[in-house]
Design a protein around this nucleic acid. Sequence first.
DNA 1: AAAAAAG
Length: 615
Amino acid sequence: MRTSWADSVANSASENATTNSSNTNGLKRPTRSTYVPPHLRNKQPSTDPHPPPHAAPAPSPVNDRAGFGGPATGSRWGGDSRPDFGRVGGYGGRGGNAWNGRSGGWDRGREREVNPFGEDENAVEAFGEQENSGINFDAYEDIPVETSGDNVPPPVNTFAGIDLGDALNENIRRCKYVKPTPVQRYAIPISLAGRDLMACAQTGSGKTAAFCFPIISGIMRGHGVQRPRGARTVYPLALILSPTRELSCQIHDEAKKFSYQTGVKVVVAYGGAPINQQLRELERGVDILVATPGRLVDLLERARVSLQMINYLALDEADRMLDMGFEPQIRKIVEQMDMPPPGARQTMLFSATFPKEIQRLASDFLSNYIFLAVGRVGSSTDLIVQRVEFVHESDKRSHLMDLLHAQRENGINGKQSLTLVFVETKKGADSLEHWLCINGFPATTIHGDRTQQEREQALRLFKTGKTPILVATDVAARGLDIPHVAHVVNFDLPNDIDDYVHRIGRTGRAGKTGLATAFFNENNLSMARPLADLMQEANQEVPAWLTRYASRASYGGGGRNRRSGGGRFGGRDFRRDGSLNRGTDYYGGANSSSGYGVPGGYVGGYGPGVTSAWD
DNA sequence: AAAAAAG
């Protein structure tokens, strides 16, 4: 067995190269030469119609701050109109100049809906989210699924078996979704039956589509519903909330694809961006509103949006939305504005993790709901090799440097694979980014103290590989689909095992292997047991020293609850636990949450050899 | 204690 992390990085990298052999230049070539983003339609051609020089092979990485690696490359606030050629994921469509207010002929061309699939519907990478392609569907038979609740509708096996309507089916075809994923097989019929739903499923498992399809279908069915005509108030029929701005953008981009030519209008609203353009979009009509909580409250208080016609409410990353920081805002939106009560609307909650105490809170928003948990494929979490190393606080930087050096030396064609480094604080993110840059590793950072332009710029530079290292706080931990992340480093471990699960789920996506390295030290004692348990459950090699820490006293309540007794059925309906384990049970199975081990895992069973990083 | 989310 290999013991060096350098080998494992090399192995992981080369496997990625093999897995992706038909697309080895995915990071550097223009992925959608034929696609014109909505905000660029009907504009004068860019002064440079060709991809800029850094589109050439082996681009030199850049940083987005003055003084490191040259000037920023993004168009930022609407300067030039260069195509966002390097975009890989769905979210990047926001581009650099989405807020410039220069709608040009776009408004006038409003009767002509922009084709989000581009002119070439057969383009392989028409969208970054290829969650259904490249999956070994035979492995689905092995996926553990648990449902509970009254009269659970049976799952379907094909999209054809679901009456979603022609237009939606056509978009499913355009997305190249050949077969529903497990969460879709179960969630869509439940949702079409009008039932409330609490669903546990890994990110990357198609849950966005799982709640979007029924919503779009339902809105189409109910077309012609009369809505009030407030002076400047709009009345969306569906509301989708998410905990970060970038995630809302990503969901919006997905939903736009699904609703193309259905007549269903999707609008996104989030903070940090000028509100005027969002207001204009709303005024042009909205059926599905995707939003972050703060901006939505603003819109509600301005009476620019009313929730009284909401038929569908979806909370993505629902456990995060209902944790301490968010809960009051969510309650305000859902309970204290004009939204119809549970039972009069349909409510769907989705997350990869669902702690029991959050389930209890969430049940306030639900009516006679069905609980759905879709587990991972057998050992597919081996797609992510998890390593934990004991690193003293003072040694972290040099240790990270060692990792990056080896990764660089073992990289493909001298090109670094993408590395996502999670830290605890915003200041820590800035300082680590600066340190990496002055030590020859172009890095950028994303956290809540940066402006929204900077955040989007950072994400774009990272996604396109121009800046192959991204230092992030937990703002990037959840939901973001960033292809080609080969390595997630938990430079600072989170204090909650669920956060760890979400973080490492940024890699090992789309059937590729991923590596997750965690730095553990005496500040993380409370994570020893949950981490050791999680790794063991995911068939990872647990260092003996970690097992020793884990078996000692339980270090206070860190890591919160943990480890369901159910093994791969960690996602458990809290209603089944009755009052049995309340209070005293710490590891006893009353909880829910990350029993799946690792999000993204189910794309596995993808092919032979994926577990070989440690063979 | 920190992060996120309105400005």
